[in-house]
């Protein structure tokens, strides 16, 4: 076998190249959504002064976890999600740990209901995502009420929910397109 490789240098190079490419594809599949999450967290924590920037950060990160856990769970390993979530927490403004907790909840729900959700279609998945964002916003609200020791307005919950639910279809389309591009590229 070794001899054959020595005599056939081209085959060896091709095999090595294919092996490396396969490794790259596997790595990309394993870490792509987690890297996207961290990049979104860093970009949306930059002080651009855009209205609703932090709410959008939460919405897009939870949307990312929801989409990949539901439609391509192999791309979203649990350990990667947890480590990515810890990094995301450093760039979040919500009470520490809340976003990470709801990312894990989104992952768990997506894994548990994946088969039934795939039969029901997009609307149910969208509604469940809305409920997860609502849970996150409510947890933030409760913890901030405890911190401030006084009643706070509930309008931020409504705003966050509206922004997340409104932005999810666009995120879904974007990720579907990205997924198709990635799979086409991997097949070549």
């Amino acid at each position: 076998m070794v001899m054959r490789f020595e005599h056939g240098g081209l085959d060896h190079d091709a095999l090595e190249g294919a092996r490396q490419r396969k490794l790259m594809v596997r790595m990309r599949r394993k870490f792509f959504p987690c890297i996207i999450m961290v990049v979104l967290a860093v970009i949306l924590s930059t002080p651009f002064g855009i209205l609703g920037q932090m709410e959008l950060q939460v919405a897009l990160i939870l949307g990312t976890v929801w989409f990949w856990s539901l439609y391509r769970p192999a791309f979203m390993p649990l350990v990667g999600l947890f480590c990515g979530g810890l990094i995301v927490e450093l760039f979040s403004v919500n009470p520490p740990g809340v976003l990470l907790f709801w990312m894990l909840v989104a992952y768990g729900v997506a894994h548990g209901c994946r088969v039934s959700l795939s039969r029901q279609g997009f609307l149910l998945a969208w509604s469940l995502y809305g409920l997860i964002v609502l849970g996150e916003a409510l947890t933030d609200w409760v913890l901030m009420v405890i911190r401030v020791r006084g009643a706070l307005s509930v309008y931020p919950i409504v705003f966050q929910e509206a922004l997340a639910v409104g932005s999810y279809p666009f995120l879904h389309i974007l990720y579907l397109w990205g997924l198709s591009v990635m799979e086409k590229h991997d097949r070549l």
């Binding site: 649990l78 947890f82 979530g85 927490e89 009470p95 520490p96 740990g97 809340v98 990470l100 907790f101 894990l104 909840v105 992952y107 768990g108 894994h111 913890l143």
Partner: peptide
């Protein structure tokens, strides 16, 4: 997953 959720709750409490 339960262990990670438990850790996340721990982070919330620590925070």
């Amino acid at each position: 997953l339960p262990v990670f959720v438990f850790l996340a709750v721990g982070i919330i409490l620590t925070g």
